[in-house]
């Protein structure tokens, strides 16, 4: 064990012949939040999709470099295993519209056979919904379709669905970008407590510097497909060593 839940080494990604990431490296210690920040279009989402091998689905994508989950290269694992251990929450809430709230959360545990009985499955679902701070709002209507929920609730349902597969790493792709402020706060809170109490390691992608500093222990500043600066959040925020980072914090990038 290296003590790092996730290590990205010299990651280079090309999409349809266009270079998106140009040698990205960083490490995430276990049970911490790493915020990956940077202006839009700088390859943050692509990086997350490379980590859990969702880019495998895109025939136009070429990925080089290494990614290690708890010291093991993702290239040595089955993609299904990688995605379960490092699961993802997307920018837009995307619960399965044809499944009930309960089934949305239960679908992952069912696929992976995580529950031995109905009770165990119920427990996992409840745990995931509680962890996503949604349980109190939906416990009496678990059979409703997700279309009855608000956008922010749907995003927390997506979070609960991801948690229910018991991931070691959670990859969040601007999870609050399309959510109202109240729900955004709830999601941020949920993430802090997940890290503290469940020991999950989080990679949080955002284009908002304030949010990046607020939620994270470590900051990675991505610009033009490269890591411009990284380090403990407080240090980077107070003393950016690169003028680009400074500009980004001032909102000029």
């Amino acid at each position: 064990m290296t003590g790092y839940a996730l290590e990205v080494r010299d990651l280079r990604v090309t999409l349809s012949g266009k270079r998106i990431l140009n040698g990205v490296s960083f490490r995430c210690p276990e049970a911490t939040v790493t915020a990956v920040m940077g202006p839009s279009g700088t390859g943050k989402s692509t990086m997350l999709r490379a980590i859990n091998r969702l880019l495998d689905l895109n025939p136009e994508a070429m990925v080089e470099g290494d990614i290690l989950i708890h010291g093991r290269s993702v290239w040595e694992m089955e993609p299904y295993e990688v995605r379960r251990r490092a699961t993802m929450v997307f920018q837009d809430p995307n619960p399965f519209p044809h499944m009930s709230i309960y089934d949305n959360v239960a679908v992952g545990p069912r696929l992976h056979g995580l529950a031995r009985s109905k009770q165990e499955l119920d427990e996992i679902v409840r745990w995931a919904l509680e962890r996503a701070m949604l349980w109190d709002e939906v416990k009496d209507r678990l059979r409703d379709p997700p279309s009855k929920l608000s956008g922010g609730q749907r995003q927390r349902l997506s979070l609960a669905r991801a948690l229910a597969v018991k991931p070691e790493i959670l990859l969040l792709d601007e999870p609050t970008a399309n959510v109202d402020p109240v729900n955004a706060v709830k999601i941020e809170e949920a993430i802090r407590s997940l890290v503290r109490e469940e020991g999950i390691t989080v990679v949080f992608v955002t284009h908002m510097p304030s949010q990046a500093v607020r939620v994270s222990d470590y900051l990675v500043f991505l610009y033009g497909g490269r890591v411009v600066e990284q380090g403990p959040s407080r240090e980077v925020a107070l003393n950016p060593s690169n003028p680009l980072t400074e500009k980004f914090f001032r909102g000029e990038l």
């Binding site: 969702l54 992952g108 992976h112």
Partner: peptide, 17 residues
């Protein structure tokens, strides 16, 4: 939508799943 497809894959489902 692609997002729904990605959601299914991101849970670690096999292609058949």
């Amino acid at each position: 939508p692609l997002s729904i497809r990605e959601a299914a894959y991101s849970l670690g489902a096999t292609r058949l799943e």
